[in-house]
């Protein structure tokens, strides 16, 4: 398994993006992604052109759509869903999520706590959270300066509250890419631990929860139980759990690279434990948990300590 840099939330001129599907693919290739998902608002009109362009450029393009409803946005990736966005209501959103998943798609709650009306109506998610509990992923970071600010903190807290309720929801980043030249120096990406960068493998890995989001940090993170190593997203057997972490700087990151790491935290339903860490060094935390265990990585960037990466969870307690 290898972790691939992916951008799972993009737009083209088929909705309100400024790039054609071919331009998006060219730009994504230049930015070094292994895979992108095209998630235009309420249409898949640009998908075929993007997939064809991706084949020519060696870039995986995952078919998708962004359900851009009045009550919140969800990206749906895989290309199997037959759900019509206008049929989605606060009362049936759980059924529509399940329908898309039954057809093989991955459903992600997009930028749930971003400001909505009157600046971006529908962007702020007001769906009953209990009805979103079956979603596959949660965009804990999105758009510009993803790891900074109140909204990112609140989204991280809300995602952890889903995990605490027993949900199995991968953490993802969504750049929500609309314009050719608006990739800022501080963008993040979702790393997906897949067998290959092929779309089916990437989606299968996301469904398993083998992801982490990061600004400039590549993380080799595993849980070790009874001498056996488990990747991010795994269901762990009972026993003492060692969370092992080694980090390197991302060579693909554009600028504002982290200067140095400071610490990492293991966050579980029981609380958090922390340990210092540096780039290139391996550190471990021994922990105990019954539901979930997430790793947060902190470091110095832009002359302040920031949260630089968050892994999806290791789980206990059985599948959802």
């Amino acid at each position: 398994m290898k972790f691939y840099r992916c951008e799972l939330h993009t737009h083209t001129v088929s909705s309100d993006g400024k790039m054609t599907p071919e331009e998006l693919v060219d730009r994504a290739t230049e930015c070094g992604y292994s895979a992108i998902a095209l998630t235009d608002h309420n249409t898949v009109a640009g998908v075929k052109r993007a997939v064809d362009a991706g084949k020519k450029r060696g870039l995986t393009v995952i078919p998708g759509i962004e359900w851009t409803t009045f009550y919140g946005h969800l990206t749906v990736t895989g290309g199997g869903s037959d759900v019509l966005w206008r049929d989605i209501t606060p009362d049936n959103i759980d059924e529509k999520i399940a329908r898309a998943q039954s057809l093989g798609d991955v459903v992600t709650i997009a930028h749930p706590l971003r400001m909505g009306f009157p600046l971006c109506s529908g962007c702020h998610c007001v769906y009953d959270r209990a009805k979103l509990a079956g979603a596959d992923c949660y965009e804990i970071w999105s758009h510009y300066y993803p790891n900074e600010g109140v909204v990112a903190q609140k989204q991280l807290a809300e995602w952890l509250s889903f995990l605490d309720k027993g949900c199995r929801m991968a953490a993802v980043y969504g750049y929500d890419w609309h314009n050719r030249d608006d990739v800022p120096p501080s963008y993040a990406c979702t790393y997906v631990g897949a067998e290959s960068a092929d779309g089916k493998d990437v989606l299968a890995a996301i469904k398993k929860g083998a992801t982490y989001v990061s600004v400039g940090v590549e993380a080799d993170c595993a849980a070790i139980v009874n001498g056996r190593e488990y990747p991010i997203g795994s269901e762990l057997p009972a026993g003492e759990t060692r969370i092992r972490l080694t980090c390197t700087k991302s060579e693909d990151y554009r600028s504002d690279k982290p200067a140095e790491l400071t610490r990492f935290a293991v966050v579980t339903e029981r609380g958090r434990e922390e340990m210092p860490i540096r780039f290139g060094k391996t550190a471990e935390i021994i922990t105990t948990f019954d539901k979930y265990c997430v790793v947060e990585i902190y470091g110095e960037r832009k002359r302040e300590e920031q949260l630089l990466a968050v892994t999806s969870a290791f789980y206990r307690g059985g599948a959802r």
Partner: peptide, 27 residues
């Protein structure tokens, strides 16, 4: 069935649709 959606900020838009071509978010 559904022929797509046009979602963008412009308040004046024109679409052309046929069996072989379409624009603006339509199929």
């Amino acid at each position: 069935g559904a022929v797509g959606t046009a979602h963008r900020g412009n308040n004046s838009q024109e679409f052309e649709i046929s069996e072989t071509d379409a624009n603006g978010g339509f199929y």
